[in-house]
């Protein structure tokens, strides 16, 4: 695609948020970095510009405006914080792709807080009924993002969602980030993906 797409990263200064932001800065995207801590945002912006001097990147202190300008919204915040943000951006996220990266872990990191017949992605879809929620980036850790440009490794990364066109667009985005996109299924496949990551976390914490 020639036309530059605008991506709002909600929670850009978090571990995953900043890893995703850095990895997408080399693509044909305009990145709007949203976070609550302005000095952290500024720092992230400078880091990105040092890595990619031509990056089109701007810090933004309003999640509503960021989402309004965006074509794609990445929700890179913890699961418990998603409801509040979803309520705020609902109107301007209408019909847009919203990427859910959250793993709904409990406080002790040994279980998921979502009911068995649901997932963080499906819960977000309920909060944003007219957005196109896509699950992505939840099965990888911030440390898995390729450090070199172009990416030295090409690890697979699962995505799931209901809208074929949105899946295609997110596949391209995941590829730009340095991963090989694998479509796992419709949005309900997020249940498997989120549980997969839980198993990985349990192994790490053993």
């Amino acid at each position: 695609m020639q036309t530059r797409q605008t991506i709002a990263i909600i929670g850009a200064t978090g571990n995953m948020g900043s890893a995703i932001s850095k990895s997408l800065a080399k693509g044909n995207y305009r990145l709007l970095l949203f976070g609550k801590d302005e000095s952290k945002l500024k720092k992230l912006e400078l880091t990105i510009l040092r890595l990619h001097p031509d990056a089109d990147v701007a810090p933004i202190t309003c999640s509503y405006t960021a989402s309004w300008e965006a074509d794609i919204i990445i929700s890179a915040i913890p699961y418990p914080a998603e409801k509040e943000v979803a309520d705020r951006i609902k109107e301007v996220a209408n019909q847009k792709i919203v990427i859910s990266i959250a793993n709904p872990l409990n406080d002790t990191f040994d279980g998921l807080v979502t009911p068995p017949g649901s997932s963080a992605a499906e819960e977000l879809q309920k909060l944003l009924p007219h957005s196109k929620v896509i699950k992505a980036f939840n099965t990888i850790f911030a440390a898995d993002f390729p450090k070199t440009v172009p990416a030295a490794t090409h690890t697979g990364s699962f995505i799931a969602g209901n809208d074929p066109e949105a899946l295609e667009i997110v596949s391209e985005l995941v590829n730009t980030a340095g991963f090989y996109p694998i479509i796992a299924g419709d949005l309900s496949a997020s249940r498997i993906l989120e549980n997969m990551q839980l198993i990985k976390i349990l192994q790490l914490n053993k």
Partner: peptide, 11 residues
């Protein structure tokens, strides 16, 4: 109709 519309700000 509103449910089908995409609001978009362009600079």
């Amino acid at each position: 109709i509103k449910t089908y519309l995409t609001p978009k700000k362009l600079r």
